[in-house]
Amino acid sequence: MKKITFWGTILLAVCLTLSISSLAWSDSRSDDGSSHGLWSQQEAASQVMNKTYQNECSACHFAYPAGFLPARSWVKIMGTLENHFGENAELDATDSQEIEQYLTAQAGDQDPGRFSRSFMRSIDNVDTPLRISETAYFRREHREVPSGMVLDNAKVRSFANCASCHTGAEKGSFNEHEIVIPDHGRWED
């Protein structure tokens, strides 16, 4: 009986250690983007893989992770490139199709990743958001950020410029510890 209690305690300790460390790992991605083990795939938003998406879209702005919006949002965005948030961003049909296929396949409701579940839970089924920054999850995550650090900061200007502060964003990492706000320094929560 005593032996069973002993091994039970060991098992419990191992389970606790693993669950705590997986939480810790999911929150601390190393700077070079290397993985730490079994849970590494959960750490980052799915990284931008498609070269056409990267080339065409990041010519003007940060190439947002597909998993931050549902497929229906990407379809709508790709269908209205002629007026893309006030800009004309038309593409030829071949590139447009390739990018739409990539984005919808990797969309948050198709291929769940590190942050997509949180984004998807915060989006109503009847809504088709076009801006990641208008989703409830995004707003919640950024509600403590004063406008002086982003909107009124000439080096940031908009919440659309993820990589201005999220230094790991290009690698798909939005880890809180990697946030450096231009002219303000590291973000301390």
């Binding site: 002629e82 800009e87 004309n88 961003a89 038309e90 593409l91 030829d92």
Partner: peptide, 13 residues
Amino acid sequence: AKIEKWFRRNCKW
């Protein structure tokens, strides 16, 4: 191709 892409976008805008 890049020349034409940006002519189309920027002339229209």
